[in-house]
């Protein structure tokens, strides 16, 4: 009980709790599209591409969150453009962009003098180090992303179901594809500080995959995925404080535990 009280006493824990709730709702909401469209490799590529953005920001002396978002968005749109214009498979295009971004990031990092702890925050994340400004940015992006996805849920789902049919029905498939790629890129990069580059894709995919095990409709899919995201985030955060473990990995392990539970429920129900 004392430990729970601490969450309502210490500002850094309050911010961490708020961040885990917001990201717990946002990431799986977007993650449903990642799972349904089989874009896990794309998400991974974007999170690693943000690495190049961080390196650029560090060298140019600009806010690392802004530079990582900017580069991730450019890479995401580049992948969308290249997939459309060439006959190459998504995997190939993503692999090319991914490798280029990582290599560029490493090259640029090599130009930096001394040890930069702030850069490594992005690698592994640190939800306990979230500032008030970070929280405001997460809140703003969360509201914007969810509002756009909810308003345009129909065309996004139409395209996810079958893009040819969507095109015939008058949907501007290209516009919505680019918009979805952009949203995924922004959501991934703003979540980096919380969960880190290495694990951020898990926050998108695992709660969404858990929800997919149990959902009997799209409405339930979106509700369940965000519910699992929030439960993972809050439980993982509390557990990490109590057990004195790293928050990001603890959150991911909790969400994986929930995934296996849903698989068990699904099997039992079948």
């Amino acid at each position: 009980m004392t430990m729970i009280n601490e969450f309502f006493t210490y500002p850094f824990l309050q911010r961490a709790l708020a961040a885990s709730v917001m990201v717990g709702i946002l990431c799986p909401f977007v993650g449903n599209f990642v799972v349904l469209r089989r874009m896990s490799f794309f998400s991974d590529a974007i999170s690693h591409s943000a690495f190049a953005g961080i390196a650029v920001g560090a060298v140019l002396g600009i806010d690392l969150s802004i530079s990582s978002v900017a580069v991730a968005v450019v890479i995401a749109l580049f992948i969308a453009f290249l997939s459309e214009k060439t006959g190459l498979s998504h995997d190939t295009v993503i692999g090319i962009a991914f490798s280029g971004a990582i290599a560029s990031g490493m090259l640029i990092m090599g130009m930096l003098k001394g040890y930069r702890a702030d850069l490594f925050t992005f690698l592994f994340g640190d939800i306990l180090a979230i500032t008030g400004n970070d929280l405001l940015m997460i809140l703003a992006v969360s509201i914007l992303a969810i509002v756009i996805l909810v308003i345009f849920l129909k065309p996004f789902l139409q395209i996810t179901f079958n893009s040819d049919l969507a095109r015939v029905e008058g949907i501007n498939v290209r516009l919505f594809e680019y918009l979805l790629f952009l949203i995924i890129a922004v959501v991934i990069t703003i979540s980096l500080k919380i969960i880190g580059m290495i694990l951020v894709t898990s926050l998108l995919i695992v709660p969404a995959a858990s929800a997919k095990n149990l959902a009997s409709s799209m409405k339930r899919l979106f509700i369940l995925s965000s519910l699992f995201g929030v439960v993972s985030g809050v439980t993982g955060l509390i557990a990490s404080v109590y057990l004195d473990t790293s928050s990001g990995p603890t959150i991911v392990l909790v969400s994986i535990g929930i995934f296996f539970l849903t698989m068990l429920v699904k099997r039992t129900a079948a």
């Binding site: 349904l36 089989r38 909810v150 308003i151 345009f152 849920l153 129909k154 065309p155 789902l157 139409q158 996810t160 179901f161 079958n162 040819d164 049919l165 029905e169 008058g170 949907i171 997919k212 959902a215 009997s216 409709s217 799209m218 409405k219 339930r220 899919l221």
Partner: peptide, 28 residues
């Protein structure tokens, strides 16, 4: 179409599929 390619694990009901086809394509 002849062969409809879609993910069979897509948790989409028939009524949801049809309602998504009905304009407008925004939900306000």
């Amino acid at each position: 179409p002849q062969k409809l390619e879609f993910d069979r694990t897509f948790p989409l009901t028939v009524s949801e599929l049809l309602s998504f086809t009905i304009p407008p394509f925004y939900t306000i």
